[in-house]
Amino acid sequence: MSDLNTAMVEKYRSNFLKEVEANVEEGDWVKMCMQCGVCSGSCPLGNAWEHPPQEIFMMIRAGKRDEVLSSSSMWMCTSCYNCIVRCPRELPITHIMHGLAHYAKRLGLSPKEQPTAKFAQLFWDNLSKDGRVNELKLGLALYFMNGFGEGIKTSLKMKDIGLGMVKTKRMNVMEILGGHSVKDKSGFHAMLKKAAEIEEAKIQK
């Protein structure tokens, strides 16, 4: 368990709703849910969710902290915004889902084998290195996400598309050697560092 997680458990005791209100993006909207279930019914991936949004909100109010934060549900959100459009109480449900996922990730509670979460990490690692997304590396990383054998298999399957992209100059094979980056790389890293500091300070207060 991360230190931050222990600290948060200590700070909010049994009141998970207050914790969400204080730390999750748009979290103060959670109490306004009236349990109509329109969000759950509107979600195109609703069937695949462990707990649909309505249930997540109810679980937050019921203080089911571990179940909510370690759930894969909010990672399933594709940001289609159907729920936001339809919520009669005008809750920014999509944003709350991302907020919850982000908070869970920060506390180290997000599910380890969740593909969306894994891909998000790959994407971040890729992007934060040079300030530009290296599509070749990102794509390959994605192929090999679930092991070497699987990676080879996927690569062979995608071979023709890849060659086609190279032919039409949509992809540069040389990118594998490092690739392009932002002009001021150190400045970019300084910015990221500052942002992390600000966020850290926000959590600590």
């Binding site: 109490k31 306004m32 009236m34 349990q35 109810m58 109010r61 019921a62 109480r89």
Partner: peptide, 14 residues
């Protein structure tokens, strides 16, 4: 009025 109750932090549990 219901919304106002929610804003004031009254917990509603079905």
């Amino acid at each position: 009025f219901y919304r106002s109750g929610q804003k004031k932090g009254v917990t509603f549990t079905k």
